Every structure is written in C-alpha cells, then in structure tokens.
Amino acid sequence: MENVVLKVSGMSCGHCVSSVQKAVEEAGASGKVDLASGQVEVSYDSAKVSLEQIREAIEEQGYDIL
C-alpha cells in the first residue's frame, strides 16, 4: 500500500469533503479528508490504481491538487 497526502484547493464545506471522499473511493483508494487543512490522506494499491488516476478523479469533481 502506498500512502500520500494531497493538498486540495477549493474545499469549503462538508459537501466538498463528501465529494472528494467519494472521488477517492470511486478511483479505488481510501482517504481521509481534512477540511481545515485542505488535505486528503490517501492509501492505495499502486498495482490497482495510480496516483494520477486518483488526482484526476478529484479534479473531475472541480477541485485542484496543489
């Protein structure tokens, strides 16, 4: 398992947290989203999903990865 912390720009409410969480999970990873810090801690199996796929899933929800 790989672990990475991504800085996510544009989150401002609980709905944003839910959207990012859902995007990470649908990409095939697990994550813990922290609204206060604007970060998401992601754990994923690099044999099943790439970090780029996770980043794209979050960006498709309208958020930027810094």
Rank of each mutant, 00 (worst) to 15 (best):
I65F: 09
Q53R: 09
A36G: 10
V40Q: 05
K22E: 12
S46A: 14
I58Y: 05
C13L: 10
V17M: 07
Y44I: 04
V17Y: 05
D45F: 03
L66Y: 06
Y63H: 06
E25F: 10
I65T: 09
V20Y: 01
G31T: 02
S37A: 15
G38P: 11
G14R: 05
L66D: 15
L66K: 13
E52A: 14
G38L: 05
E60V: 02
K48W: 00
S37Y: 01
R55K: 15
V20R: 00
A36N: 14
S30G: 14
A27S: 12
E25G: 07
D34I: 09
E26W: 00
E60N: 14
S43T: 14
G28W: 03
H15L: 10
A29W: 01
I54V: 12
G14Q: 12
E41S: 15
R55G: 05
A36C: 06
L51T: 04
E26A: 08
V20G: 07
H15S: 15
R55C: 13
H15T: 10
G28M: 01
A27E: 00
D64M: 08
V24K: 02
G62K: 00
L35M: 10
S50P: 10
G38H: 05
Q39G: 10
L51D: 06
S43E: 14
Q53P: 02
G38S: 08
R55Q: 15
L35Y: 08
E26G: 06
K22Y: 07
V49P: 12
E59F: 05
S50L: 07
G31K: 03
D34E: 11
Q39L: 12
E59K: 08
I58G: 04
K32C: 09
A27Y: 00
V33D: 00
Q21V: 06
E59W: 02
S46L: 05
S37P: 08
C13F: 10
K48A: 13
S12A: 12
I58K: 01
D45Y: 03
E56S: 11
A36I: 10
L66T: 06
E25Y: 11
C16W: 03
S19M: 15
D64R: 12
S37Q: 13
L51H: 06
I54F: 04
H15F: 11
E52F: 08
A23V: 06
E52C: 06
D45K: 03
R55H: 11
E56W: 01
Q53W: 02
S12N: 12
E25V: 13
S30R: 12
